[in-house]
Amino acid sequence: MTTALFVVLAVTAVVAGALVFRVDSMARATFLLLLSFLAVAGLVLMTGLQYLGVVIVLMMVIEMVVMAVFMIMYMMNPAGLMPMSMFHNTRGAAVIAATTFVALAGGALLVDWPVRGGAPAPDLTMALGQSLMSGQMLTMMTLGVTLFATIVGTVVLAAGRGRYDRLGDELDAPESDDRDRGGVGR
């Protein structure tokens, strides 16, 4: 039963991931990628990491929907109206893919896997949280601040209008000049 489930999820993850490059619609490509990620989330759940598995589902659904918006906005063949190919640099990509596969598969088969020592924590979610909030605190803080700085920087670069456009060079305009009126503080 467990083996069958593993095989189904693993095959789904790989096949859906490969199909991403075969379909001729950005929407289908995005949601096939989502299907692939959901299968991976299933595999994570199978290892007993309930919280991480469910969080992968949560993150990936939101991410893929947002990504679909951007994919369709920026990439070729927005609505399946023109022939489209997802392949670029096929020869280089084939070499990289084959090398990676051989290295990973070889590693998995050849490495002398250690025998498990100790038992898993009774509550894996609690153990994960304690690890993140104590031993890995510095990592998480660095990650968090970096991501936050990236978001702020991206928004600053992307925003067409800022507070000086709204409230004048001295920020002292009696009323803000907004495209859409009637929001907060107006």
Binding site: Q50, Y51, V54, V55, V57, L58, V61, D123, T125
Partner: peptide, 11 residues
């Protein structure tokens, strides 16, 4: 009765 039930609901 999932251990991460709230996250499951959200997901």
């Amino acid at each position: 009765d999932l251990g991460a039930g709230i996250v499951w609901f959200n997901a």
